[in-house]
Design a protein around this nucleic acid. Structure first.
Length: 586
RNA sequence: CGGGGUGUAGCGUAGUGGCUAGCGCGUCUGCUUUGGGAGCAGAAGAUCGCAGGUUCGACUCCUGUCACCCCGACCA
């Protein structure tokens, strides 16, 4: 039993100045967490209670799925991360340190290498597989910008699992098992979530899905189709390419003077005035905008890449980076243009783009640029544009690249209706890693023919500490937190409201009986604060059921209040234990 | 790393060169109070982020520096 009179707790009446999002404000105000350093937090007793509940649900579901728990150190030597090149590739995000001898260490940001090496050290036969191992561990990432309290810290707790299989079919099975376990876990945590297809990101590999908890403060943007249920991270959305168009009736391409056409808007309004089309007005979507990037490969080599998108859309750099991984892209600067005299900034057009063109710059276009589409696009001379420049007839790109910004109303690749755009917190991520890490560390086993085969892996993460914040984010009101029963710091928040000895005697007795009945109780036994303070604290803390022993005690009643709905009802004191026990069993 | 902002008591804040740095919350003492963050009386608590400079005088102006927050680029 937690007693408020002695509990290490100080609730705050005002929001902390450095908090922006509701979960951060409320977790601090309710005395669940305190900041120690940017992105680094201490769990206070109530917060730690919630954290442990979340952790034990996660552990419980992992065990139920047949995965086995191990525990690696957070402090790791450099060498394993050299094998996979991540000592370098992780860059500044890695917390590095040295021991007294000057040997390099790191604080683990994730543990693929360690798990892979562990299995390599113990197992060497196909008969040992499949196996899935997991740990619940603090991870350290020196994020460029930690934010939103515990939602994105530099030290955070993650449950990470890894599956080891001898072939792709096995990996598929392991992946599905984790997927099921994740669904069970997040459901029990009381989180609303969607599963979206995702890019595999820096980890390499193929199939990948994210579990996102929808909330306005989420850092991930995803699309959702209300009619067929398709969901995808914006990075992974597949743009629907229109059908090819018969271009035989389109006039021949011609170059026109287009003064003051530095922006798409100016170009469109100018075009409608002086070069109106026969059927309808020109729009930004009729212009083909060509943006040049410098793509830097991990080995440092650079190359130019031209991307053509409809003029009414920007290039989504997140989508671009995701596609180019592990290379990085930056937009052309003045100094880059000097190296490519054929490229006239602001008037770049397909006629000088492409691997076989005079510029030699690789040219990729948006999927909407199908054969027969008719464009206004740069003529590679200042203040000049091509009109009726038709894809497939007047130019051909080197390929397709799907990196234009995604918008609400864009077409769902599955059913063709318009989809919506929402934000979510990434609470879990599962993906089929494949053999990347197994190859890097040499994890092979003998198959039934006595041949060495490389193991194939899956990798699966749950942000455990983040889940606490995600729950808070999804479940609160203007008065405070509202915890789902299974993660709440207690089942019942018992308040002794009044000053009569009789009230405290009855409340003490009830608290004891509840505890004996296995109901977790937070008992506000403070004699020095007024009932109003206790009520406000109980709403801020967010335990699902509030029981008040107060003015109706004389008639033999206590009051039950549901934190979420605010509903109150009087219950006979003699029935209280039984009823509260029953609440727990639902 | 780019852009913006802020550093004053445990928390939230006021203070445009001039007296002893002010207020609310919280804390402590005493009395009163107990169904919606109580009242009265008193008290403790601040090297005004740090360093340097200008000035008779700096929380206030200048320079530098550090830290933190927010928006972007990157991630459970």
């Amino acid at each position: 039993m937690l007693r408020m009179s002695t509990l290490f707790l100080r609730t705050l009446r005002e929001d902390p100045a450095d908090a922006e999002v509701p979960s951060h404000k409320l977790l601090v105000r309710a005395g669940f967490i305190r900041r120690v350093a940017p992105g680094v937090f201490t769990w206070l007793p109530l917060g730690y209670e919630v954290y442990r509940n979340v952790e034990s649900i996660v552990r419980n579901e992992m065990n139920a799925a047949g995965f086995q728990e191990v525990h690696f150190p957070a402090l790791l030597p450099r060498e394993p991360y050299e094998l996979t090149n991540r000592w370098t590739e992780y860059g500044d995000t890695l917390f590095r340190l040295q021991d007294r001898k000057g040997a390099d260490y790191l604080l683990g940001p994730t543990h693929e290498e360690m798990f892979t090496l562990l299995v390599k050290g113990e197992y060497s036969s196909y008969k040992d597989l499949p196996i899935s191992l997991y740990q619940i561990q603090s991870k350290f990432r020196d994020e460029a910008r930690p934010r939103a309290g515990i939602l994105r810290g530099r030290e955070f707790v993650m449950k990470d699992s890894y599956s080891f299989d001898i072939d792709d079919a096995g990996l598929q099975v392991s992946y599905e098992k984790h997927r099921e376990a994740y669904i069970a876990t997040f459901s029990r945590l009381g989180l609303k979530f969607v599963i979206v297809s995702a890019m595999s990101g820096a980890m390499g590999g193929s199939a990948s899905e994210e579990f996102l908890a929808p909330t306005p403060v989420g850092e991930d943007t995803f699309v959702h189709c209300a009619s067929c249920g398709y969901s995808a991270n914006v990075e992974a959305v597949v743009t629907v390419a229109p059908d090819r168009i018969d271009a035989s009736n389109i006039p021949a391409a011609h170059i026109e003077q287009t003064p003051a056409s530095g922006t798409i808007e100016a170009l469109v309004s100018y075009s409608n005035r002086d070069f109106a089309r026969d059927d309808r007005p020109w729009t930004g979507a009729d212009t083909l905008k060509n943006i040049i990037f410098v793509v830097a490969a991990p080995d440092g080599s650079e190359s130019a890449l031209a991307i053509g998108v409809p003029g009414d859309r920007e290039i989504d750099t997140k989508r671009l980076e995701a596609l180019l991984q592990p290379s990085e892209a930056r937009i052309f600067e003045e100094s880059d243009f000097l190296k490519f005299p054929k490229l006239v900034k602001g008037y770049i057009g397909p006629s000088v783009l492409g691997e076989n063109s005079i510029s030699g710059v690789r040219y990729l276009v948006d999927p909407r640029v199908v054969d027969g589409t008719r464009w206004i696009t740069g003529a590679n001379e200042a203040a000049r544009h091509f009109y009726d420049y038709v894809a497939g007839r007047d130019f051909t790109a080197d390929g397709i690249i799907d990196v234009a910004e995604v918008r609400a109303g864009d077409l769902c690749p599955t059913c063709g209706s318009g989809f919506e755009i929402e934000r979510g917190i990434e609470i879990g991520h599962i993906f089929q890693l494949g053999r990347k890490y197994a190859e890097a560390v040499g994890l092979k086993v003998l198959d039934e023919n006595g041949e060495l085969i490389t193991v194939t892996m899956g990798s699966y993460g749950i942000g455990v500490s983040r889940a606490v914040a995600a729950i808070a984010e999804q479940s609160h009101d203007d008065k405070g937190l509202i915890w789902p029963r299974e993660v709440a710091p207690a089942d019942v928040h018992l308040i002794a409201a009044g000053k009569d000895d009789a009230i405290f005697i009855a409340a003490n007795k009830l608290a004891g009986e509840l505890e004996a009945a296995g109901v977790r109780v937070l008992y506000d036994d403070r004699t020095t604060v007024s009932p109003g303070v206790k009520f406000n604290d109980s709403e801020l803390i967010g335990i699902p059921t509030i029981v008040i022993v107060g003015k109706r005690l004389a008639e033999g009643f206590v009051e039950f209040k549901d934190r979420r709905t605010g509903e109150r009802q009087d219950v006979a004191l003699v029935d209280a234990v039984q009823e509260l026990k029953a609440l727990n069993e639902n």
